[in-house]
Amino acid sequence: SEIVVAMYDFQATEAHDLRLERGQEYIILEKNDLHWWRARDKYGSEGYIPSNYVTGKK
Rank of each mutant, 00 (worst) to 15 (best):
L20S: 02
R22D: 03
R19N: 15
P50K: 04
L34V: 13
E2C: 15
V54S: 01
E30Y: 07
L34R: 12
L18V: 03
D9A: 06
R40H: 02
K42N: 05
Y26R: 00
V4T: 04
S51H: 07
E21C: 11
D33C: 13
L29M: 06
E21A: 06
R22Y: 09
D17H: 15
Y48D: 03
K31Q: 07
G44N: 05
Y43P: 00
A39T: 02
D41H: 02
Y48S: 05
M7Y: 05
E30M: 09
S51K: 08
Y26S: 00
Q24Y: 07
R19W: 07
Y53E: 01
F10G: 01
A6K: 01
S1T: 13
G23K: 03
I27P: 01
T13D: 08
W37K: 00
K57N: 10
G56T: 15
N52V: 09
D9E: 06
E14K: 14
G47S: 01
K58M: 13
V54E: 02
E30C: 11
D17C: 15
W37F: 05
E14F: 12
R38K: 14
K42E: 06
S45N: 15
T13C: 14
Y53A: 09
D17K: 15
L18T: 01
Q11I: 14
S51M: 07
D33F: 09
E25S: 10
H16A: 10
I3H: 07
H35N: 11
D9T: 06
D9C: 07
N32Y: 11
A15P: 15
H16V: 08
Y8L: 10
L20K: 00
A6D: 01
A6M: 01
F10N: 03
R38P: 00
V5R: 07
I28F: 02
V4M: 09
M7T: 07
E21L: 08
A12H: 05
E2D: 11
T55N: 08
D17F: 15
L29F: 04
T13R: 13
R22K: 14
F10L: 08
V5C: 11
L18K: 00
F10W: 15
Q24C: 12
E21M: 08
P50Q: 05
Y48F: 13
H16D: 12
L34T: 13
L34E: 14
R38W: 15
E21Y: 10
E2T: 09
E2M: 13
G23E: 05
N32D: 11
V54Y: 02
Q11W: 13
K58Y: 14
A12V: 08
E30H: 07
S51F: 06
F10A: 03
T13V: 14
Y53P: 01
V5T: 09
V5S: 04
S45E: 12
L29G: 00
K57F: 11
L20E: 00
K31E: 03
Y48N: 08
D33Y: 09
H35V: 11
I27V: 12
L34H: 12
D17G: 14
M7S: 05
G23Y: 06
D41L: 03
N52Y: 09
G56L: 14
A6H: 01
I28V: 11
G23L: 05
H35A: 09
W36R: 11
I27R: 07
Q11S: 11
E21D: 08
T55F: 08
E25Q: 10
Y8E: 08
K31P: 02
K57G: 10
W36G: 05
S1H: 15
F10M: 05
D41N: 07
F10S: 04
D41Q: 01
L20I: 05
E2Y: 13
Y8M: 11
G23C: 12
S45T: 12
M7D: 06
L29P: 00
N32S: 14
G56P: 15
E30D: 13
G23D: 06
K42W: 05
L29Q: 02
Y53F: 13
I27D: 04
D17S: 14
G56A: 15
E2A: 09
W37H: 02
E25T: 11
I3D: 02
N52G: 12
R38L: 15
E46L: 04
E14D: 14
I27N: 04
A15W: 11
D33K: 07
